[in-house]
């Protein structure tokens, strides 16, 4: 028996909107720790890892570990039927091949339940080791989204370089080139508007902008985004989900032949 009651139902709606274009089908894993997902895109270039910790739910009952295969497009269709202020409860019985999403309006005058068919998904769970990164950049998520969108109108790839001067996003395409440098900026009053660059050593990596743009669909989840770079690892683009956990996107770099 599984019953997860999320008062801020809009968080789940936003999570779905941020992953449904990257991943088609995925297993949602439910354990005492929380509600989580790990999935790769169909070409195995990007990976998404989501964690919504059990403490973040108003009510969290998960009698035994359960993995529920869902088509994310179908799940998104159902969650779109929930109001932004609705409380969402996810329910499933042991051994059932369906999951139920219950939506309650804040005033309790409207209660809806949507039952969705589950599916068997063969997916490999990858071990993601703890790592030291050469550089970690924290910046406003809207700024990062703007940069990715702007650069993708010029080129297909972005070179992200971190030096002591700042973080540089560069692209080139048929019509020309573009470079955007963001410097560390901690003087602003609001911490979520600051740009913080922690650099152990300079790093420069090339990534497909198509994926970066897809990751920025998570922008509504957090004011800040953290970009962790290492020359030996996929980049990690992380959006913290207030009080609950995170959504992390991993993207393998492009390497010169």
């Amino acid at each position: 028996m599984l019953e997860l009651r999320l008062v801020q139902g809009s968080l789940l709606k936003k999570v779905l909107e941020s992953v449904k274009d990257l991943v088609t089908d995925a297993n949602f894993d439910c354990s005492a720790t929380g509600f989580s997902l790990q999935a790769m895109d169909s070409s195995h270039v990007a990976l998404v890892a989501l964690l919504l910790r059990s403490e973040g739910f108003e009510h969290y009952r998960c009698d035994r570990n359960l993995s529920m295969g869902m088509n994310l497009n179908n799940m998104s269709k159902m969650l779109k039927c929930a109001g932004n202020d609705d409380i969402i409860t996810i329910k499933a019985d042991d051994g059932s091949d369906t999951v139920t999403f219950m939506f309650e309006s804040p005033t309790q005058d409207k209660i809806a339940d949507f039952e969705m068919k589950l599916m068997d998904i063969d997916s490999e769970h990858l071990g993601i080791p703890e790592a030291e990164y050469h550089a970690i950049v924290r910046m406003p998520s809207a700024e990062f989204a703007r940069i990715c969108k702007d650069l993708s109108s010029i080129g297909d790839t972005v070179v992200i370089s971190v030096t002591k001067e700042g973080v540089k996003f560069s692209t080139r395409g048929d019509i020309g080139t573009a470079n955007i440098v963001c410097r560390q900026n901690t003087s602003v009053d609001k911490p979520e508007e600051s740009t913080i660059i922690e650099m152990n050593e300079p790093v420069s990596l090339t990534f497909a902008l198509r994926y970066m743009n897809s990751f920025t669909k998570a922008t509504p989840l957090a004011n800040s985004v953290t970009i962790s770079l290492s020359s030996e690892l996929p980049v990690v683009v992380e959006y913290k989900i207030a009080e609950m956990g995170y959504i992390r996107f991993y993207l393998a770099p492009k390497i010169e032949d």
């Binding site: 790769m40 070409s43 195995h44 270039v45 990007a46 990976l47 490999e124 769970h125 990858l126 071990g127 993601i128 080791p129 790839t157 090339t206 497909a208 030996e232 690892l233 996929p234 991993y250 993207l251 393998a252 770099p253 492009k254 390497i255 010169e256 032949d257």
Partner: peptide
């Protein structure tokens, strides 16, 4: 020419 790497060449099942 830049070659796209795959996630599975960095992380292994486990």
């Amino acid at each position: 020419v830049n070659q796209q790497r795959q996630i599975t060449s960095f992380f292994t099942p486990g």
